[in-house]
Design a protein around this nucleic acid. Structure first.
Length: 413
DNA sequence: GTACCTTTGAAGCAA
DNA sequence: TTGCTTCAAAGGTAC
């Protein structure tokens, strides 16, 4: 069992965010992971099992009478499936096509499990190319993560989340350099993990140092840091080196002209309203009014798996030519289980730091604050869908009977 | 325009 | 303490 650095290097010893269940997760998944790794032969297996699981699910439900303990509920499901069978299968077919398309792609059939994971943690470790005038970006290592390779060579002013894959990097506008003048800070890549509220500044330790040196060794394929040495603070810079980027930001108050909106902060509409440089085009008065009118939603910090998905999604899309997030997430879920404990530990650690930082920045925030923000179907409706009332993205009928997939690797199922 | 699907994990809440 | 529910991301799909 990996011993996570529950202390996390944070001072005060109050860091109990080490999520004891993370360790439990390792415990529970240990044997299963081994099985998964043994059986993880590559994307073909990923996709084939995904396909077969979908088929089995339908067939199993249709033949539910043979399942021990299967009663009226299974019969009802089977009946419902039977009624909809003809029409619902177009989705699996479509999925199959997608999967097979993915298999045709040579890059999809190679090395899905072989390559080193660019851990989110390692991505945090890397430093952006120096942004001095007249300096040319040094050669970047071959990162699959497109988000780490801004096509325009200008370091992205991206939050922590954007360290991870962005399948559709925003093309640089022609006047990008000009627009960047409006950016309050030319702290690329590492900027804006979380913007600080005005009141939270004092609660942070002297330097909320984003781990440096890294707690985990850089993977051989992640030599980003070697290529881009830590930026040296400009003379007179108000912040020390290795200070957490959030400290480099403006007031951090959402809507404040000098603030960089954190992805955890979204307008009530649920969408990021403006890019930083777009926002800067607004007058301060307008921004102030807007801030008063729209109280942004502070979103939950991402958990380990979400961070993993962020990083790996683009890679899976590229390798398997899949687009449906539901299918991609299934693959990612299985890959997650196939990860070694050490690799998972990186993400757990990163997620722990996310939560810690989130807690520091938004002391009064609770996950409960966002309850009900999403308009979700009623529970009754949800149950209806589970019993055959509505098909899912794959044309199958989700049922709680399939829930063990949430707790067991699909390779075991 | 918006909910759903799918995944795992964290957190909240009721019993 | 246990079990259930909601939300976090993502983008195609359906309504």
């Amino acid at each position: 069992m990996p011993q996570l650095d529950s202390g996390g290097g944070s001072a005060g010893g109050g860091d109990d965010l080490g999520a004891p269940d993370e360790l439990l997760a390792f415990q529970d998944e240990g044997e299963e992971q081994d099985k998964s790794r043994d059986s993880a032969a590559g994307p073909e297996r990923d996709l084939a099992e995904l396909k077969s699981s979908l088929v089995n699910e339908s067939e199993g439900a249709a033949g539910g009478a043979g399942v021990p303990g299967a009663g009226a509920e299974a019969e009802v499901r089977a009946e419902a499936l039977g009624r909809e069978h003809a029409s619902q299968r177009h989705f699996p077919d479509k999925l199959s096509e997608s999967l097979e398309d993915g298999l045709k792609a040579p890059e999809c059939a190679s090395g899905m499990y072989k390559e080193t994971v660019y851990s989110a943690f390692n991505l945090l470790m890397h430093y952006p190319p120096p942004s001095g005038a007249g300096q040319h970006p040094q050669p970047q290592p071959q990162l699959h993560n497109k988000a780490s390779q801004p096509p325009h060579g200008v370091p992205q002013l991206s939050p922590l989340y954007e360290h991870f894959s962005s399948p559709h990097p925003t093309p640089a506008p022609a006047d990008i350099s000009q627009k960047q003048v409006h950016r309050p800070l030319q702290t690329p890549d590492l900027s804006g993990f979380y913007s600080l509220t005005s009141g939270s500044m004092g609660q942070l330790p002297h330097t909320v140092s984003w781990p440096s040196p890294p707690l985990y060794p850089l993977s051989p394929s992640c030599g980003y840091r070697q290529h881009f040495p830590a930026p040296t603070a400009a003379p007179g810079a108000p912040y020390p080196r290795f200070t957490h980027p959030s400290l480099m930001l403006g007031s951090g108050v959402p809507g404040h002209p000098a603030a960089i909106p954190h992805p955890a902060i979204v307008p009530p509409s649920g969408k990021q309203e403006l890019q930083p440089y777009d926002r800067s085009l607004k007058t301060q008065a307008e921004a102030k009014v807007e801030k008063e009118v729209k109280k942004p939603t502070i979103k939950k910090p991402l958990n380990a798996f979400m961070l993993y998905m962020k990083e790996m999604r683009a890679k899976v899309i590229a390798e398997c030519t899949l687009k449906e997030s539901a299918a991609i997430n299934q693959i990612l879920g299985r890959r997650w289980h196939a990860l070694s404990r050490e690799e998972q530990a990186k993400y757990y650690e990163l997620a722990r730091k996310e939560r810690q930082l989130h807690m520091q920045l938004y002391p009064g925030w609770s996950a409960r604050d966002n309850y009900g923000k999403k308009k979700r179907r009623s529970r009754e409706k949800h149950q209806e869908s589970n019993t055959g009332g509505k098909r899912n993205a794959f044309g199958t009928y989700p049922e709680k009977a399939a829930a063990p997939a949430q707790f067991l690797p699909m390779t075991v199922l």
